[in-house]
Design a protein around this nucleic acid. Structure first.
Length: 317
DNA sequence: TCATTCCTCTGACCCGCCCA
DNA sequence: TGGGCGGGTCAGAGGAATGA
C-alpha cells in the first residue's frame, strides 16, 4: 500500500511536470534556469567518490577535476559534492549570477525560502535525514571545493599545448541560517561571493533550462545531467545547422557516466533516465541505433528566439 | 516541531540467456 | 567463445511518515 502511494507520488511529480510543459512549453521568467556549458559537458559525481585525493572526469580534450575543501576543525577533507543537491545549487548559482551580473549572491534571510527556491522541501525537518541538513552538508562541500578545467590542444592526435583554470567556487560567504529550523528568519542576510574565475566561467557560456523539468527530475542526478546535456546538444545542432549527430554509448559514458564500472549498467540506467527526460522535454529528437543513439535538431527546452539575445555571443561549440 | 525510522530509488555487481 | 542484454540482489543515499 505504502509502495503504491510512494510510486504514485514520484510518478505523479513527473507526469504533472510533463503535462504542464506540454500545455505550456515556454516557461515563465521565474521558471528559467541556467547552467554553464562546461558543467553540462563534464558533470559532478552522482554518488560519493569516497576518500580519494582528487576526482576527475574527461570529455574529449576537456577534463574536469575537483579537489575537496579542508575542514580545519576536524583536520580532514570536507568531501566531494555529489548527487542532486549540488546540481540544484549550481543551477541556482548560475541563474542568479546571470540575473544579478554580480559575484556576490544574496541567499536570503530564511533557509526555508532558499530551499524552496532551489527545489527542496523545508518541511522535512532539521534531522540528519532532512533536506536542511543535506543542503548544509552539500553546500559546504560545493562552496569550499576547487574545480579545475583543463583543455588539451592537439594536432594530428599529438598534444601541442594545454590551458587550465583552477577555480574556487565561493571563497567568501556568510551563512546565518538555523539549519534545525529552516523557517526561522535571521537578523542578517546570508550570502556567498563566487570566486572571480568561477564567476567568469559560469556567465560566459550559459545553457538555458526549464526549472519545472529540473524539479521533476531532481531525484536522479543522471536524469538531471542528461536533461542539461540534451538541451545543450540540441541547441548546438540547431546553432551549427547540423541535422543530426551519432553518439556512441562508450563515448557518452566516458563523458557523463565515468564512475560507472559497468558500461552495460550505464546504458540501462541512461535509457531509463532518457525516458524521464523525454517526458519533460517533448521537443527532444533522438533515436536509438546500433552502438549508440542519434540526436537530431529540434526544439530546445527554452525557445531559442528569446534566449538567443543573451546567448548568441556566449555559447559556442 | 524535530529527530528518527522505514521505505524507495539508484548505482554496483553478478548471473544466465541469446546470438553471431 | 565473447559480447550484448535483461533480470536479480545488495548497499548507500534520498524521500516520506511517524512518534516523542
Amino acid at each position: 500500500m505504502i509502495t503504491c502511494i510512494n510510486l504514485g507520488k514520484s510518478l505523479s511529480l513527473l507526469l504533472d511536470a510533463a503535462t504542464e510543459i506540454q500545455m505550456d512549453p515556454e516557461p515563465t521568467e521565474q521558471d528559467k534556469a541556467f547552467l554553464t556549458r562546461q558543467l553540462v559537458q563534464v558533470t559532478l559525481p552522482h554518488s560519493s567518490p569516497g576518500n580519494v585525493p582528487i576526482w576527475k572526469r574527461r570529455n574529449g580534450n576537456l577534463t574536469l577535476s575537483i579537489r575537496p575543501g579542508w575542514n580545519h576543525e576536524k583536520d580532514q577533507p570536507i568531501g566531494y559534492p555529489f548527487g542532486s543537491i549540488p546540481r540544484l545549487l549550481l543551477f541556482w548559482i548560475t541563474t542568479e549570477a546571470l540575473r544579478t551580473q554580480s559575484r556576490k549572491l544574496e541567499l536570503g534571510e530564511s533557509l526555508a525560502g532558499f530551499m524552496r527556491d532551489i527545489g527542496l522541501d523545508p518541511s522535512t525537518g532539521g534531522g540528519k535525514r532532512g533536506d536542511g541538513r543535506r543542503l548544509q552538508n552539500q553546500m559546504e562541500r560545493l562552496f569550499r571545493a576547487t574545480i579545475s578545467l583543463e583543455m588539451m590542444d592537439t594536432k594530428d592526435k599529438n598534444v601541442i599545448g594545454k590551458r587550465w583554470i583552477d577555480m574556487q567556487v565561493a571563497p567568501e560567504g556568510e551563512l546565518w541560517w538555523n539549519f534545525k529550523n529552516p523557517g526561522q528568519a535571521t537578523l542578517f542576510g546570508s550570502w556567498i561571493e563566487l570566486g572571480e574565475k568561477f564567476y567568469e566561467a559560469i556567465i560566459a557560456s550559459p545553457v538555458p533550462l526549464d526549472k519545472r523539468a529540473l524539479r521533476a527530475l531532481k531525484r536522479s542526478p543522471l536524469a538531471l545531467d542528461l536533461y542539461a546535456w540534451a538541451t545543450y546538444k540540441t541547441y548546438s545542432l540547431n546553432h551549427h545547422k547540423k541535422v543530426e549527430q551519432f553518439i556512441p554509448w562508450h563515448a557518452f559514458m566516458a563523458q557523463l557516466g565515468a564512475e560507472y564500472n559497468d558500461h552495460k549498467n550505464f546504458k540501462k540506467k541512461a535509457k531509463a533516465a532518457f525516458k524521464k527526460v523525454r517526458s519533460v522535454y517533448p521537443g527532444l529528437e533522438m533515436e536509438e541505433v546500433d552502438g549508440g543513439f542519434i540526436i537530431r535538431q529540434g526544439k530546445t527546452a527554452i525557445r531559442q528566439k528569446q534566449s538567443r539575445r543573451k546567448l548568441s555571443t556566449k555559447i559556442s561549440g
